[in-house]
Structures are given as C-alpha cells and as structure tokens.
Design a protein around this nucleic acid. Structure first.
Length: 314
RNA sequence: CGCGGGGUGGAGCAGUCCGGUAGCUCGUCAGGCUCAUAACCUGAAGGUCAUGCGUUCAAAUCGCAUCCCCGCAA
C-alpha cells in the first residue's frame, strides 16, 4: 500500500514515526516550505521534514498544494492512500481524488465537535472534560468527512495544552495504525457526522493570551492551561508585558471586601496572589518583557512589587 | 540584513543619559538571639561590570567591533 503523508506541526511526528516503524511504504512526505522565521528571520523547517530526512523518504514542500505542478507530483506517486495530519494547507477535492482508495485525516477532537485549527487549545480553554482523536475520510468541507474511528481521553483539571497535545499525538499514531489495518482488511464502516452537532475551534490570536482579571479565577486558569504553548497568558506590570508561566487557583477565600480585579493581595516568599473577578490566582513563575523566565522568588529580589499594586494596565 | 530590550559577586536588579572609591534585595558562611515567623541581630567571604580594541589623567558609564540571552513580528 503506497502512502503519501501530509503533515507539518510536531503533532504529526509520532504518526509519521509509527508508519516508518511499522514499515508502511511511505513514498513521499509533504510538508510546509522552509520559511524565514524567528528572531533574525533565520530559515527554519518543519519537524516532519527532519523525521523524513532521518529515514530518507522523499520530501515535497509546495507553496500551494492545489497547484497543477503539485498535482502532477502527487499523481506520480501512484498512491493508494493520503494521510493528512496538521498539514497547514486545505486540500481541494481535485487533490483528494488522487489516491486510489481515499484520503484520511486525523483530527484532535471528537468530531463533529471542535472542527477547525485549534481543537486542543479550545477544549481546555472551555473547560471540557473529554476529548480525543477522530479519523475521518476527507471531503471538501473542513473536518466534516465521514467518521472512521474515534478514541477518547479524559482531560484532567491540571492538564495543559502541552500535556494533552503530546498525549493526543501519541494516540493519533495508534489510531492511524489501527485505521490502516482496517483499511487493509476492508473491514470498516464510515459514519456521517451530524452537522447540527458541529462546533468550531478557530485559530488562536495573540489577544487570546491577555488575562482579563475581572473574569473568575477558574476561567483565567483554563485559558492559561489552553494557551500555554502559544500565545501564553500575559498581563502588564508597570507598562511592561508580563508573561505568567506558572499559575494556579488560590484555594483560600479572600476575606476582605471586594478588591478590584488585578490587585496584588498577598506577597509570599516565592509567589504572589492576584485578585480576580471571582476568587484569586497564585503566580509562581513569570517572565518580564526582555527578560528570562524566572521564579517569583527571584523576580521579587529585583522588583519592589508592593501590596495593592494592580496588574493589567498598559 | 524584519523591529526592540538586555549581559554588573551564586540569583534578581540599580548605577550608564551627565566618566571620578562597586550599590540594593536575597542566597552562602561564621557567631548571637527568640515560645514563635518568608524569623530577627551582628559580622564575613565572594566582581578582570559579557569579550576585544579605541578615546581619556581617569571607563560599568563615551566610540567601534564581536559573542550570548530575551520579547515582538511571522
């Protein structure tokens, strides 16, 4: 069975590694082009490219996967199946029609919930308790194809998007191998999604990371867990951007009368407590604009933060 | 050549504009004190001020170059 693998983010890496380990015949790996990015705009390439290079599989990095040139490259592969995971470009029906069997996609949610670019982040931000991996047969509409198989996992109260993503990416690899066996044995059913149940998980923006102190502590904490990889949770301290790196809900009630949200209410040796719209949060690690990430204990050595100071003002 | 911030005893910072004895909060070590605290008091050790070159009577501070760290933007 000839397989063409489409993937870009590191979420896809365990799946590609699994295919290689199980000795599937991956004839080509398609990934996003090298881009100049990061500080100094140095060129960088995707993790998937590194994995493919390690196994001397052919690599293809088209700017536009739906172009005529790309189509002719893909047709030459004589592929039975396309496997698409976190690739980063939308495939048109013309491309999806190339493989002899069909194209499958692995998506990090229980479809039809959380269709779209950021399902893992959004599930945590919304405080959802269960998520998973769904394997679908792709069609023209994004993440709307018939369901092949699903795998569930619980989201714990303290899971961050980084924990959950690495767990789901391993699950995706297992799900992919399972799916391939079913396809090989022609032993599968395709179940259409109920579009009425569909919800969407749009891409995150920088602004999704800004802490709104007037919200309840739980909400801010969920948002923190769900955006930890990017953009992270941040606020402002004396006009400078302050990134919060380690955060938890402060378990005690604030006994005083209502303090305005964002006020520093306690300063301990290695942490500070900040009042929210409801409840309070404990910050243990942070990073000031231009500085390294550091424990609050060290931060307090150099910054004379005082009780009653209000965070969040630009 | 994308834009910007930074490198000062072990940690975090001030001092740099306007050149003139190396400072703060911690930590470490020694001694003291308290029923007790993130305790407290007294004392000590620990710095080629990222690196190199230059300007100057004199450079952490001014100029040029190099290395490294971080934020933004993608």
């Amino acid at each position: 069975m000839n397989i063409v693998f489409f993937g870009s983010s590191h979420f896809a890496a365990p799946s590609l590694e699994a295919l290689i380990r199980e000795k599937y015949n991956v004839t080509l790996v398609v990934t996003q082009p090298d881009k100049k990015s990061g500080r100094g705009m140095h060129p960088s390439h995707t993790v998937i490219k590194s994995v493919a290079q390690g196994s001397s599989i052919g690599i293809y990095q088209p700017e536009n996967i739906n172009s005529k040139e790309a189509a002719s490259v893909l047709k030459k592969q004589n592929a039975d199946l396309f496997v698409v995971i976190a690739y980063g470009q939308i495939l048109t029906q013309a491309v999806l029609d190339i493989p002899k069997i069909f194209a499958i996609n692995l998506h990090a949610s229980l479809l039809p919930e959380y269709r779209g670019a950021a399902p893992i982040n959004r599930a945590i931000i919304n405080g959802v308790k269960t998520t998973g991996i769904t394997v679908i047969k792709m069609n023209r509409k994004m993440d709307a194809g018939e369901v092949f198989l699903k795998k569930e996992t619980e989201i714990s109260q303290t899971d961050t998007v980084i924990d959950l993503e690495s767990r789901l990416s391993e699950m995706a690899a297992q799900a992919l191998i399972e799916a391939l066996r079913l396809i090989k044995d022609k032993n599968y059913k395709l179940v259409p999604q109920d579009d009425k149940e569909a919800s969407f998980a749009p891409k995150l923006h920088k602004s999704d990371g800004e802490i709104h102190w007037e919200e309840p502590a739980e909400t801010i904490y969920n948002s923190f867990r769900g955006t930890l990889n990017w953009p992270g949770s941040f606020t402002y301290y004396r006009g400078k951007l302050l990134r919060v790196c380690k955060l938890s809900v402060y378990p005690q009630e604030l006994e005083k009368e209502k303090l305005s949200a964002g006020t520093v209410t306690h300063i301990f040796k290695d942490s500070i407590v900040v009042a929210c719209g409801k409840g309070a949060l404990l910050i243990e690690e942070l990073q000031l604009e231009g500085k390294r990430k550091m424990p609050v204990q060290e931060f307090l050595s150099g910054h004379k933060i005082s009780l009653g100071e209000v965070l969040g003002k630009k």
